[in-house]
Design a protein around this nucleic acid. Structure first.
Lengths: 324, 324
DNA sequence: TAATTTTGAGTTATCGGTAACACACATGAA
DNA sequence: TTCATGTGTGTTACCGATAACTCAAAATTA
């Protein structure tokens, strides 16, 4: 129809008919059907953002950055929330494929996400991987510097005199968990401290569901004097569990973690954290993705590693109780 | 094609061809195109959730509830974030219309959202209104009890001996702001206190951008001894600004607000709040919406009003400095 | 065995857009 | 005036699925 030419400003149209069409469009409250358009154009102008926990401020801040960047380039966003769950992630990947989105910003649940990423790749959907690297999958990635951030946190604790520092980590199959462990190890090595493997526990980033782990740590002959929780959700759970056991932070035990808590921490700063630039994760990731989609064929994969910032707050104190 | 019959388990198909089709589908990694399907079926199995601030834990918790409920019924979710901005909201409404979503869960930015809601209605898109009522628009709504919640907060302050309580409110054209003001008023009236209009300020729920307002309050001959911030974002801003001015909460001034902060407050409880059941907002709203879409024609509009819970924490204290 | 019903699979039209082409008419150059 | 070019609009095919229909072959019934 001539209408299509008016809407898209393509082809030749006389000013008279253009006005006539516009008028009728207004009268009928006509709005083009983007599905029909996508069907013929073979692109949807929809991108997908898959995150692993929508109640975690780290990820919602990512979402905000991604949304802003997508909007700037005229894309809509289809959100997905995998809840750190491989099966939910699979469902979302199926949905993404059937929706024929133009690209995906993908925060994987773990190494087993490889299968999902490959599935997307097989269908020629551009993917940018976010926050966690997946061994065996090559694509643009935006990561935090987990190792360095972890080292900073642990060195901070060591500087306060702590020698027995527990690591309550995410799952083994998540790259950031491995790297945070590596940073933990490096901090010990650089300070000439030996590591007690009994102080290291791998759980899940989603929440601190297994409190028996904490009891096992606290009942050791020489219990830890500080805990490094590998992300904010774990820290929430750990501190709650500590409180239930009558222990106060930082009086009885110091706690640090990765990732900040958003607004709440600005009101009432408490946790010492390695804060990652979440908004940038989202906006830079989205930029890379859009470049892939719209730009000339980019050959080499790009890897952005964003530094984290050590924010020393009230949840840590020197071992003897006084500040150093 | 026969394939369609296999996918949808409709019509008559022999087991042999069914298997043959399945096999080829697997080989080709075939995934049905949901846009093409939507086009002919005239429904997309996509719902939209429009919230006003994706970095506010209140709304992300709503999102979580909505997502869970949508998933249970096999719907996908298209998120939008209006940022309390009428223009952004308009953009999302256009997008919603062109995507032909099956329904919208809509948290309006304010009374002027009426136009957008009517536009959706005109296109026969089922809408459930969330969190804020829009005068002149009739639909299912899920609301919090703003008046009651506000009254509880203010009565708590009055019970602590406060007599000069400032109200830092959202915008005039948002129903919850008006109701929270009404609750504030009611608490005063019931306690036989007169209200000083100079203590009441209307701003925006989005953030506390105008700090001069705070200076004006503090420089009064009889400055307030407590502040009721109408939502959590305002409280964040107010407390930050107070701190910059060398004032501590609750030592120098008590602060209460509507809406909780998510996980952070469980770690380190600080703000006295009227916590709304955000997850229920989302899941119940989504349920109403899906009933509208799938159920028999429901005639009357439903209005759910969910109570809030007063959580007394550390940001309030008795006027003389000692606890009551 | 013939007539009837059932079964399984193919055909066509359609949803609402866009690309590519066709073509009538106006305009300009030779 | 005649032919080439330009301009505006209409036509057709198609994107990938599904509903409704058709129809041959197989199964059932009389």
């Amino acid at each position: 129809m001539t209408v299509s030419r008016v809407i898209n400003n393509t082809g030749r149209i006389s000013e008279a008919t253009r006005k006539r069409v516009r008028k009728v469009m207004d009268e009928l409250h006509y709005i083009p059907n983007s599905m029909a358009r996508s069907l013929v154009l073979q692109k949807s102008k929809i991108l997908s953002l898959l995150i692993t926990d929508i109640t975690n401020p780290f990820y919602t801040t990512i979402a905000r950055g991604a949304e802003d960047a997508a909007k700037r380039s005229g894309y809509r966003l289809l959100f997905g929330n995998s809840d750190e769950d491989y099966v939910k992630e699979k469902d979302y990947v199926d949905m993404i494929l059937s929706t024929r989105v133009d690209g995906v910003l993908f925060a994987p649940t773990g190494d087993q996400s490889l299968e999902h990423l490959q599935q997307l790749q097989k269908h020629n959907i551009p993917v940018v991987v976010l926050d966690r690297e997946v061994p065996g999958f090559d694509a643009d990635v935006v990561l935090g510097d987990s190792k360095e951030g972890a080292r900073n946190l642990v060195e901070h604790l060591i500087g306060l005199g702590h020698r027995r520092i527990a690591l309550i980590n995410g799952a083994h199959d998540v790259s950031t968990a491995r790297l945070r462990h590596a940073g933990y190890r490096e901090a010990h090595l650089l300070s000439g401290l030996t590591i007690d493997e009994a102080l290291i526990v791998y759980l899940s980033y989603r929440d601190f569901h297994d409190e028996s782990v904490l009891d096992a740590l606290l009942q050791q002959p020489m219990p830890p004097t500080a805990i490094f929780a590998a992300n904010n959700m774990l820290a929430v759970g750990v501190i709650g569990a500590l409180r239930q056991r009558g222990m106060q932070v930082p009086r009885d035990i110091s706690v640090v973690c990765f990732d900040d808590f958003g607004h709440a921490e600005t009101v009432n700063p408490f946790l010492t954290v390695a804060a990652q630039p979440a908004y940038q994760f989202g906006s830079l990731g989205m930029q890379l993705l859009i470049e892939r989609i719209e730009g000339e064929a980019i050959l080499e994969n790009r890897k952005l590693i964003l530094p984290s910032e050590l924010l020393i707050r009230a949840s840590t104190q020197a071992l003897n109780g006084s500040l150093p």
